[in-house]
Amino acid sequence: MVKQLRAARTRQALVLAAAEIFAADGYALSSLPAISRRAGVSAGALHFHFPSKDALAMEVERAARRSVEELVADRQPAAPSPLHLLVTVTREVLVAVAADVVVRAGFRLSVDPSRKNGMGFGCWWRGWVREELLRAQRAGELADGVSPDRAATLIVAATLGFEVLGVPDRDRIAPHAEQFWTLVLPQLAARGEQFAGLTLADSWPRAQSARAGRSPV
């Protein structure tokens, strides 16, 4: 039991250290010796748990996904509808990007061009966003002409973009997210939908005018 506990703590230390280095330096510039030093773990212990840098990166992505899945499970019971859940989770994921280095590293690794086996976490996140948009469409929450696929691409791109913007000034991620949804929701949601005090019906005529003559989201 003591050995198992020690092994679990070593593994956790390695994942955290790897996330810190991957988030700061990217996959290509990160090294296993640097990660083992950051974790305070010997090279032999690192290789016992993770045979390669890619195996360690995949574990960071899995840990990031578990964190977001827990967030979704926690918020889902109180969400009145799929689109409300999507807005709430996206806001909180961006807060997690600022506060949780594992989530931040997971997003960065998922789009890192130097990785051959990347996109696991990123693909899951896009799939979840798309599924919620499809559920919202079936529930009549999306405006006419809105494409769930295109909207999912936009929201996922914004998530990754805010991660980049948030690196030098993480305290401003949440305000950026609010501005994003203030601009996007009138284009996305059916008339009269309300979100945390924002009544989209008030901005509907302006949104309709802006959408006229333009490809749907």
Results as ranks from 00 to 15, higher is better:
L142M: 07
L83P: 09
R108S: 11
E59V: 08
A151S: 04
A78W: 01
P148K: 05
P77L: 06
E132K: 14
I35W: 07
A64C: 08
L94D: 13
E141F: 00
Q76N: 03
L29Y: 12
V72D: 06
P82T: 07
F22L: 13
T153Y: 11
G140I: 10
R37C: 03
F107S: 09
R104S: 11
H84F: 11
L94M: 15
A78N: 06
P80E: 09
E141Y: 03
G166R: 01
Q76R: 14
A45P: 14
R104F: 09
V41H: 03
S52E: 05
G161N: 09
S30A: 15
M119C: 12
R65S: 02
F48V: 07
A63L: 06
L133E: 04
A158Q: 01
K116C: 05
H47E: 00
E70R: 13
N117Q: 11
P148M: 04
V60T: 06
P77W: 07
A55K: 00
V93P: 00
L32N: 15
E61R: 06
V146F: 06
C123Y: 12
V102I: 13
G166T: 00
I155M: 05
P80A: 04
A23H: 13
R91I: 01
G120D: 10
R66E: 12
S36Y: 10
G26F: 06
G140Y: 11
V68I: 13
L83M: 10
W124G: 04
R130G: 02
E59F: 00
A136E: 14
I35E: 05
T159N: 11
A139V: 13
K53I: 03
